[in-house]
Structures are given as structure tokens and as C-alpha cells.
Nucleic acid binder design. Structure first.
Lengths: 115, 115
DNA sequence: TCGATATATAAACATATATATATACGTTTA
DNA sequence: TAAACGTATATATATATGTTTATATATCGA
């Protein structure tokens, strides 16, 4: 049994920690969860699980200002959580891939057990 | 494409509005994702997917100070993302429920598609 | 072209947050 | 009991972040 203060032990622990996932993955993962971790954005994503929506409609539905919605959508777009489709002067947003809805649903399951 | 003034479109908005969750759910959901949205905490949760660990070992594994790890664990504990088991002067932490690992895995799937 | 509409961007402000440092608390052991 | 050990907490501070306000860009209709 290695002493918990020995260099060998610390080396083993660090090696275990670095197994399988690169710092880039953790960094992007943290950014992604952080993007999900805002009251306005989580609502925006939730209404988008029901289908494609225009910026202005999201703003009305959630009682948010248009610049706020646009700002948040840009952040979500940069992280590939939503995608935009332009038609005329409108921009239609939708969830980018299936993982996003799964993340929301899994999160909702967790929090609904807390209430 | 539906016109934003058509009866059909208004019906869609109404339907989506009726699917809104309570503010409490969104609030807790945002808090939960925010807790996941930090480089240190996402690493802490990741190493905990390998099994129960002591505070000090997590600190060594991730090259973090002990107070930082303890601080993050308290936040994760408050949101029921991890649970603690005390044995003597040690505190063993583990993931609280199955949703947490699923959230991490779903998030990892998403970000690994970005790289 | 002019005005109206829809969205995007920028600067400023107030608030929130992660970390470092120091210290306190509780348990085991000499 | 005292010292050692593992963990928790408190405070300070620098940085990050969400919202507001104002303005810019782009498209459509008159």
C-alpha cells in the first residue's frame, strides 16, 4: 500500500485523473454546461424543444427584451447548442442536435426529484 | 412556413406556452447546470464517476487546493449532485444519483462532436 | 427612396463568482 | 491532553457575466 503522501501515490492519482479525457473536453464541457446554466437561456432552450422559433416570438413568450434573446442565442449558437436559419428579415432558431434535448430532459428529471 | 399572424401560428405559440414548466423547475435547472459549468467542478464530478473519493485525494489528483475542492463539493452537495459519507476524519464523496453521470456522458458526447 | 420591421452588436453598469489565504472545527493518535 | 491530520469555513479580491440602453445592419413594402 502506497503512502498517501508519497510521490508515487500522487503520481498514480494524477494519472488516473487524466485518463481518457483531454483538458479540451473538460473545458468545452464546462463551457457547455455554463451556457445551459442561466435562467433565461434554459427557458429559451426549453421552448425550442417544441420546435423552431423566431427571435421576436421567443422574446414575447418569455417576456425578455429582444437584445437579450439575441445575445443569448448568439452564445448558444457559438457552442453549437442551437442553429439559425435566416428567411428574409427573420431568423429561425432550433436546437442543434439531439444531445441538447436529452441534456435538458435529464436535468429536469434530476431537479424534479428535488421538489 | 406559417405566417406570424395566422391563426395556426398563434395556436402553436399558445400550445408552447402551455407546456411551460414552473419557474422553480427552471430556476433549479439553471442552478444545476451552472454547478456543472466550471472546469474544476466538471473534473471533480468526472473523477467521481470512477468511484468514491476523499477530499484530499481529489485535490491531489486534480492539482487543486484542498479548500477549493471542499468549497466546490459543498456547492455540489447543496444541489444534490454529490453526497458525502464521513468516516473518522475523512469525508468520502460520490455522485448522488444516476442522472448526474448521464448528464456528464451526454455532455461529453456533444462536445466530442465539436472537436 | 423612405419608413417600418426584425435582428444583431456595443458600451456601461451592477451583480455574481472562483480562487487564495488564513483560520476554525472535529477526529485520531501519541 | 496535546499534537497531528483531514476537512470546512470566512473574508478579500480580481475577474466574469447578465441586463439595460443605444445604435447598427438588413430586408420588405409603399
Amino acid at each position: 500500500m502506497l503512502s498517501s503522501t508519497s510521490k508515487e501515490y500522487q503520481g498514480v492519482l494524477k494519472k488516473i485523473a487524466s485518463l481518457r479525457k483531454s483538458p479540451q473536453v473538460f473545458s468545452l464541457l464546462a463551457e457547455t454546461f455554463q451556457a445551459l446554466g442561466d435562467y433565461s437561456r434554459v427557458q429559451i432552450l426549453w421552448v425550442l424543444t417544441k420546435g423552431e422559433l423566431m427571435v421576436g416570438d421567443i422574446a414575447v413568450m418569455l417576456s425578455l427584451s429582444q437584445p437579450v434573446v439575441s445575445h443569448h442565442l448568439r452564445m448558444l449558437r457559438n457552442l453549437k447548442l442551437v442553429r439559425a436559419r435566416r428567411q428574409g428579415r427573420s431568423a429561425y432558431y432550433s436546437l442543434d442536435d439531439i444531445h441538447i434535448e436529452r441534456l435538458l430532459n435529464e436535468g429536469i428529471k434530476h431537479v424534479e426529484e428535488l421538489i
